[in-house]
Nucleic acid binder design. Structure first.
Lengths: 233, 233
DNA sequence: TAGTGGTCTAGACCACTTT
DNA sequence: AAGTGGTCTAGACCACTAC
């Protein structure tokens, strides 16, 4: 007796993936239709559909109505990058987290910021500078500008105990964000904050966020020299 | 007449997302069961299931059998980072790409590499250094070590026209990878390759890849000063 | 052991795209 | 006009897990 076990979409997904990786279906090749695969695997078309949909999400194949499913020429492998709070990142490496507010004031948006965030030139913004420490050693310097029009309550938020990032996440989650990673050299001020020497190389993360299309905040987070961002895929 | 239109999983997904973002369902709250939501939206349970599954993938909710679906406390927003060939990255910014092989030789794996890639200390590896240019200006210096045991054919591959990255992608796609982004200061040799001055800050990407559990290659890619990695989410 | 999500099925209709 | 993927349904059974 053959096993009358039901075929799972994972079996289909993995087998199709295998055929792609072993070049049984080479780059650019047209796969059988969903109906044909369903017959081959003796399962419902919906099962094949889910398998192929996942492979499309993962960048292995490209699907188009009428044309069919093709193996991608240059598989666009992508990694997931998590953006957590500094506190979470620090605690995940089993270090003790400490937060310190450096500066906080309300200003009119300078030109570069207005342009960066697409707000009016004279928009009122809350400017915050704060430090995150891991085991009492500088971990990250955070400088942030928050569009008060988008989050009026922030003007009266208490930022002495917790950083603006934490406050925002709880009070006003963003819906869209743009991120850039750069490498920067420490100038005198940065070096002082991070307890390092002028010229040290550090990873800087700049992030702009929107909420329902309205610009909310621009943040620049500079990490201590030697910090690496790691991920797998 | 009310529109007898069928409810799509996207409608359900977006409405649930809205309720989470507007705190109608606050952090940690238990959502209705799939069956209840299906009744509310007047659709099939499978439709609700797909909507909630996507939200779980995106980090908005956590699902557990028997316990139900909960709003995540700290939504783990994550961005997709694509890792393309240097050539693709350059061409995408409308620059002209040029490749140049700098060095190529077969060596016994030094200790640090054996440890990094988890191969034997005396494993034979192909060591390649090459440059990628954008509009004839240095774009990326790539230094790569390839485990010959994992990809024997590479020993005789022609790397004069195209980089090892392209060759590997076509000949032996990897199945797993680990990545680290760091910021480094240019030493004399790096500065010379990148046409910059000693001490310049540059983004360095280190990647180790495996194929079916077997270590394949370790690559270190250093980008010209000022290069940023950008993404959205 | 009971409740909840996870998945499969068989069939149907829709929507996009190429011809 | 026709072919292919995209999605929904209604029902069923399974698998995990809290109780």
């Amino acid at each position: 007796m053959t096993a009358p076990k039901r075929i799972s979409f994972q079996v289909v997904r993995d087998e199709v993936k295998r055929r792609i990786e072993t070049r049984i279906w080479p780059q650019g090749a047209l796969l059988p239709t969903e109906t044909q695969l369903a017959e081959e695997f003796n399962c419902a078309r919906a099962t094949v559909n889910r398998a192929l949909r996942e492979l499309a999400d993962q960048g292995f194949v490209e699907r188009k109505r009428k044309s069919g499913t093709r193996v991608k020429k240059e598989p666009s492998k992508h990694a997931k990058l998590e953006f957590s709070l500094a506190r979470q990142t620090v605690e995940r490496q089993n270090s003790t987290y400490r937060y310190s507010l450096v500066e906080r004031n309300v200003v009119d948006s300078p030109g570069w910021l207005a342009s960066q965030m697409s707000v009016a030139h004279d928009a009122r913004v809350l400017h915050v500078i704060c430090m995150h420490y891991a085991d009492n050693r500088p971990f990250q310097l955070e400088e942030r500008w928050i569009n008060i029009a988008a989050v009026p309550e922030v003007e009266f938020a208490d930022l002495n105990e917790h950083g603006p990032h934490e406050w925002l996440l709880k009070a006003a989650p963003f819906t869209e964000a743009e991120v850039a990673f750069c490498a920067v050299s420490a100038d005198g001020r940065l070096a002082e904050f991070m307890g390092t020497t002028t010229g040290a190389s550090m990873i800087q993360l700049e992030r702009t966020t929107w909420r329902d299309g309205q610009p909310m905040t621009f943040a620049r987070m500079t990490h201590h020299p030697g910090y690496c961002i790691r991920t797998k895929y």
